[in-house]
Design a protein around this nucleic acid. Structure first.
Lengths: 107, 107
DNA sequence: TATATTTGCAACCATGTAGTTGCGTATTAA
DNA sequence: TTAATACGCAACTACATGGTTGCAAATATA
């Protein structure tokens, strides 16, 4: 597709994918695809597609075991988003932002 | 479209929109649309569409002045993303994450 | 007043995407 | 060995999206 941060942001920009990711994070154990898809209204194939997108963003890892594919969440790529956000942090509250950039200038 | 966080995430998921937003943030002054579009290879109308998306996400504010529309960046909606990320922070480094959730349990 | 500039609106195109169904295959259970 | 389960692949549909061009309206300048 495109660059890393874009892949990650596109992955989490979809509400269903955020839900799938969240379900896996809180499960804190690996879940096979069918079991994940049972948690949602959409078809297994629909869920599979979302999982593929999440996997390409690095937010899910998969390990095969027999006929099942166990998915588990990996939040690490979200660091990338956090890093991107970090720069704008000083701007989202102008008062604090102006103070900080003032201090940055002094430092 | 859909809910707030989704609008924001979709807005920043596009690399061109991230660039436009960034240009406005660092400009630290309001810029009319034509001037913004001169910074990019795509047409003015293409930029206008991106600006509309950014505005709907709250990341840009616009004030009309004569025939010109001055756009300025507003990073505040990114707080929403930061808040969403916050929950997963404890998971993206497992070692620290496990320690923190251990401490959370104790608290 | 005539002309140039800034913009919005609408139509259009190509591609991406969220979702579906159908089918074949590998693995497990009876 | 037969039946059930978990899955991938492919085709298809509907709609969203990133981008374009053309044109008309409002404002500013000559």
């Amino acid at each position: 597709m495109q660059d890393k941060i874009t892949r990650i942001l596109k992955a989490i920009a979809d509400p269903t994918r955020r839900e799938i990711f969240h379900a896996l994070v809180v499960a804190s154990t690996a879940l096979p695809i069918t079991q994940i898809s049972n948690l949602f209204d959409i078809s297994r194939q629909g869920v599979t597609k979302h999982i593929k997108t999440l996997e390409e963003a690095g937010l899910i890892h998969i390990s095969n075991k027999g006929r099942e594919r166990f998915c588990y969440a990996n939040a690490e790529p979200l660091m990338e988003v956090n890093k991107w956000l970090k720069f704008y942090e000083k701007f989202w509250d102008n008062a604090i932002g102006n103070l900080e950039s003032y201090l940055d200038d002094k430092a």
